[in-house]
Design a protein around this nucleic acid. Structure first.
Lengths: 199, 199
DNA sequence: CCCGTTCTGTACCTATCAGTACAGAAGTGT
DNA sequence: ACACTTCTGTACTGATAGGTACAGAACGGG
């Protein structure tokens, strides 16, 4: 049995190029011609390898979650609740300020969309929620281990942390530098100047 | 001199309808047909009254800044730094959870865009920066008045607050409720559970 | 009442959108 | 070397994007 002409490009490598485009321009801001140009392949190759624009985006998101977005999961391995939070936020700062374009794909690629961007938008929303859920479970464990006050709601703290993480991503899109965002993390960890010691 | 047929609609009222659409769908996610349909006017009327899509968007943003986005400026009038911050964040929570669609126009209408959305995106970024600047000046004054520690950088605190404000807007887009976001504000104000008293 | 001016509605423009048909190129297994 | 399969490149599809020409409707001033 014959096996056919082999594909002339590496699917994962070109997926990374698509990732860059979606990251910078968002789902609806990216045209197929932007993708084929950046990926160095033509339209039928794209469709045969990835399905269509929406499925390509889904593949991109998955790759982002395992690559740049992986700092969240990594942070959960830190030994204490405070260390988890610090690693998570410092990881966020690093990712959102790494490229010339700033920000986080999960946040900016499809935050508000028209009808055709509805599915990608909902999927990103789901990714954000699931990240928060993982953090919450880790903090819950910390509380069970006595690493956090017993009267503290782990869900609230997780939401607080993720709010800042997503906010850092927004800050990066309008030009905040890494040093500036690092100071945000420090202020987060130490609390506002009027903070009192925990009861 | 003749004066011509009067316009058959109220420019500001229809602008509010356009605001709703851009708020929900973002700049690039909104088609002209979405706008004309929601505004109840036809294309030539839209062009003659507002210029084009980009200028209409600019008018919408201005109106947003004076309406829903006005809570920031209002918060600056509070007497103490802490009260300013609390009012600002509580105002954010209210705005981003008010409609069935969540979020903040400044954040979500054009965060990452293609080429044609570049100007709107940059303008929103500029609005976000200028909001932070106003808060920073207010906090600077608070520090001068002894309302904040002398070694505290007002720019850092302002950035910290705006990071959370923008993060709240993102949270709202994936379904966080008002009660949940209110607890984020409370955690922000009290600091994380491991916070120590300010030196 | 009627002229001049401005708005409204229809119908159209070009460009671009996502997606695909089809023919030829480039391989592999026999 | 040949047959079979799969990929690549060109060229196209219908739909929709933002934007506009033009004719007629609706007013105000004289």
């Amino acid at each position: 049995m014959a096996v056919g002409r082999p594909r002339g490009f590496d699917v994962d490598e070109r997926l990374d190029r698509a990732l860059e485009v979606f990251w910078r321009q968002g789902y609806e801001g990216t045209a197929l011609s932007d993708l084929t140009e950046a990926m160095g392949i033509n339209r039928p190759s794209l469709y045969s390898a990835y399905g269509n624009k929406e499925e390509l985006f889904r593949a991109v998101v998955l790759r982002y979650a395992e690559g740049p977005g992986g700092h969240l999961r990594a942070a959960l391995l830190a030994p204490t609740a405070r260390a988890v939070v610090e690693r998570l936020l410092r990881g966020t700062v690093e990712v959102v300020t790494a490229r010339d374009h700033g920000g986080c794909l999960f946040v900016q690629a499809a935050l508000a969309t028209g009808e055709q961007g509805g599915r990608p938008r909902d999927e990103l929303a789901s990714w954000r929620r699931s990240g928060e859920l993982e953090l919450r479970r880790r903090l819950q464990r910390a509380r069970d281990e006595g690493d956090l006050p017993g009267d503290l709601d782990a869900a609230d703290l997780a939401r607080h942390v993720m709010t800042t993480s997503h906010g850092l991503a927004v800050q990066a899109t309008h030009g905040a530098t890494r040093a500036e965002l690092d100071r945000v993390v420090e202020l987060f960890l130490s609390g506002p100047p009027w903070a009192e010691s925990p009861a």
